[in-house]
């Protein structure tokens, strides 16, 4: 019965009241969600842009030293635990070298420079695993596409290798890569739970962790709901991107 009350509340935009903070959950999440989204977007940008680039370079120079190096780094990257990386980052860049602040979050609209400096380490830490996966996926997608007949056709037309890769291969490879981007967003949320805790960032991830520890089930429920909704939206976006990239998906 309680569940129906809760469902009814959601339909009216009411996520309930936190047991611990004595505040509306929607207000709690409303304050923290932009933080997580900011962190997530920066991480996503890092992992997607670098990952695809590294993957392509690796595939095109297949078998070279560079390819082997990138593949090695990617394999290491997938295996690194995010929280360990965060702690190491804090130790070296924060405490030893003093280059970057070790914790906290400031809105970029308030103080852009401080915000960026604070965000660099957490965003990079959060990006490492998706970046490594992105690199591996891009490399294998690209290798898959390069073997195709139409790439041979493109070469037979006398196109420069650059045009063959950028015009003919990349768009086809992206169709395969985009699937992973969708999945990455989901894993970024779980990663943000760790990173926000390590760097003491007031985002949804840390809210969730604290709620779990203080048995604040109303907040836990709401956080899970919001994250699930966001993941669903991202999946919709990737499906739309398919249609845009692959004319075979467009059916009029």
């Amino acid at each position: 019965m309680q569940y129906y009350y809760w469902l009814g509340g959601i339909c009216r935009g009411n996520l309930g009241r936190s047991l611990v903070y004595k505040e509306d959950v929607s207000a709690l999440i409303g304050k923290r969600l932009p933080v997580t989204v900011h962190l997530g977007l920066v991480s996503l940008f890092i992992s997607v842009s670098l990952g695809i680039t590294a993957g392509i370079v690796s595939a095109v120079t297949r078998g070279s030293f560079l390819d082997q190096l990138i593949t090695l780094l990617a394999n290491v990257g997938v295996a690194i635990p995010t929280f360990w990386l965060g702690i190491m980052g804090i130790y070296f860049f924060g405490l030893k070298l003093g280059w970057l602040p070790i914790w906290g979050y400031t809105s970029p609209f308030q103080n852009f420079w401080l915000s960026t400096r604070q965000l660099v380490m957490p965003a990079v830490c959060l990006a490492v695993v998706p970046l490594a996966m992105m690199t591996r996926q891009s490399r294998s997608s690209m290798l898959e596409v390069i073997r195709q007949d139409y790439i041979r056709t493109a070469r037979s037309k006398g196109l420069k290798e650059r045009a063959v890769i950028m015009r003919h291969a990349l768009k086809n490879a992206l169709i395969l890569i985009i699937t992973l981007i969708g999945l990455q967003v989901a894993s970024l949320f779980s990663g943000s739970v760790l990173v926000e805790t390590v760097f003491n960032i007031p985002g949804v991830g840390r809210l969730l962790v604290n709620a779990v520890f203080s048995k604040d089930f109303v907040v836990v429920q709401a956080c899970v709901l919001v994250v699930a909704a966001l993941v669903a939206v991202v999946n919709l976006a990737t499906d739309i991107a398919y249609g845009w990239l692959d004319p075979r998906m467009r059916q009029g």
């Binding site: 007949d149 139409y150 041979r152 086809n172």
Partner: peptide
Amino acid sequence: EPMTSLNPVL
């Protein structure tokens, strides 16, 4: 193979 020899996305 005209199916696979033409680029599907152009």
